[in-house]
Design a protein around this nucleic acid. Structure first.
Lengths: 189, 189
DNA sequence: TTGAGCATGTAACACGTTACATGATTTC
DNA sequence: GAAATCATGTAACGTGTTACATGCTCAA
């Protein structure tokens, strides 16, 4: 059977370091890993079992003092080969449902005051996310400088994705502010 | 039971006009409706049945000549009430998995030439989408001018969402071009 | 004559989320 | 004393996709 996108996502993290299922979930929840989505343990553990059955990863149990034992997964040469093929394979663009944009599309039938309140909440949340991404970006830039382009190591991947995060959040925030201005024209306090 | 996001998405379209299940799917696939996602008929038809059981919509069968009969759904006053509450209710921001960004995050282990080819494919596709959104945006602006802000009709919703579409695609294209420049530095032809 | 569009639905399967089960250590 | 963190897993459920079933009309 074919490997799912979640399966490949796990392989990309194991290409950087050997990790347990728990640690994989933790990595995916880090702010600068926004593009991984937030997979649950209940999805990651069975997926790791499948990857092991397909010989793309191997596992070994590590005894820990004070903490539960953990199962550390390591990428196999076959896993690396499959991953490298996938990384440069064609990717379909998929339009995903956005609850907030569906609501924005129906703003014409909303109460302006109540809508404004929700737009301000979104603005605060997105400003916080942007600040986070910008901090990550400057940290990478200060550490690697103009050599980033030539890097054949993980920070190159971090750099390009955090840049997308910053661009996306800036665009989203500009849009939120533009809609807030429109709604205020309609309902001045 | 609670109404799903797809259920509310359907209600937002029925607030604009009475439609059949087939027509709802068609609406959701239009380029400027990118934020609806592409729901299948097999999901829309049962969802409409549930909405009718919950008394949020009513249906009537319309005989057509030369085409199959269709079932036209209409929003009820209760449906409109539920919808108006939902539109101004809090929305959780959800980070969605992006296959292309996961690949970008693993660019450090990819062949630069092959990666560049995929980035150029994405660039062409996103340029085409941007052109589409920009055409839609200018069409709305030319038709309604500076009165858009005061509109309490559907075009206001179209206007704000198409603006997001344009902003998003411009940000995405800028990012693609920046990464292409980086990859070309790494692998000059 | 082949395919696209119109039109509604069911069944099987894949993917994702929530809840349940267990249990020690550390921090507030 | 309560909550968070570490750690792995199963079961049930909800959502989304693919395949199947049917059949007429119109355009290339």
């Amino acid at each position: 059977m074919a490997i799912s996108t979640l399966g490949y996502a796990i392989l990309t993290l194991l290409a950087r370091a050997s990790l347990s299922g728990y640690a994989i979930a933790r990595e995916m929840r880090k702010p600068h890993s926004f593009f991984f989505g937030h997979a649950q343990y209940s999805q990651i553990y069975p997926e790791l079992t499948r990857l092991e059955q397909a010989h793309l990863v191997t596992s070994r149990i590590i005894d820990q003092q004070g903490k539960p034992d953990k199962k550390e997964y390591t990428l196999t040469p076959l896993g690396m080969q499959m991953l490298q093929q996938w990384v440069v394979a064609p990717t379909q663009i998929t339009e995903v449902r956005s609850e907030f944009l569906i609501k924005a599309h129906s703003l014409w039938l909303a109460d302006s005051e109540q809508a404004l309140a929700q737009f301000h909440v979104q603005l605060q949340q997105h400003l916080a996310i942007l600040a986070q991404y910008e901090a990550d970006l400057t940290a990478i830039e200060q550490r690697y400088g103009i050599d980033i382009a030539r890097l054949q190591t993980p920070p190159f991947g971090d750099y390009v994705t955090v840049q997308m995060g910053v661009s996306y959040e800036r665009a989203y925030i500009e849009w939120l502010r533009r809609v807030i201005a429109l709604l205020e024209q309609r309902a001045p306090q």
